[in-house]
Amino acid sequence: MKAENSWFDKSNFRIYLIFLFSFVLIYLDFSNQKIIKEARKVINDSVVYTVYIVTYPIKEILKIPREIKTLIDLKDQKNQLIVLENKVEELMQQNYFLKQDYKKNEEFLKEEEPYKSEVIYAKVISKIDSIFSNSFALNKGSKDGLKVGSPIVKNNNLIGQVSEVNYNSARGIFLTDINSRVPVVIGEKMYNAILVGSPLKTNKLSLEFLPKQYQFQNNDKIYTSDINGVLKKGIAVGYIEVKEGSNNNYNIYLNYNSRQVDRVSIFIN
């Protein structure tokens, strides 16, 4: 019994060996050893897909209430659609609708011009929201041409960046992750800043390197800047809400709720 209680007993040799092996693993992984790097890619791929398969049934069961709500909403929308369809028919007869539609399409294409780029569509297969990281796994990897740093977009809004690429999967970090750094341009006055993930701030976001004399206005839009050459210029990120009574007291809101992300687009050029 006495021997069991001691930390430095010979019988603990196996324990020290496992600890030592773990430390060596940490060192090798950090020092980017090629063998460990390749092994890590294989481990990541297998872990991500295993977790996806294991958690898939639970995820589907948890989705049921949301699906029911969607069904109820769809019923309401169907009624609205019937009314709209009647209106469309009227307008079509007047030829007015087609002209308006053409105009809208033309405007939309102009807006989409900056987003013309090679894009990969990927599925989010798992999400991690913990004290250590706020990230997600994608079902596309280096085989599909993904690179570290590529911007991840949903509905033309930036939601994160690729942080690690494996063979068949990749890891993306949300903008709210503490390691996320995104150069941005803010508002009409085009202030340059870095959008940083700050877990303890409101909405887990903060701005760094703002000019000394800055004054935000309510609903100032935040767009990406191509200052470091990694991100594309002008991808929408979010907006600023200035608190009453102070111009320098503000909250940052993202355009897209990253919690509900299921499929994303990744710019690879």
Binding site: V24, L25, I26, V48, S126, S133
Partner: peptide
């Protein structure tokens, strides 16, 4: 470690 994307072995040492 693989799931949260930190160096392999960190959580192992913490758990142990």
């Amino acid at each position: 470690d693989s799931l949260i994307g930190i160096s392999l072995g960190i959580s192992s040492v913490a758990y142990m």
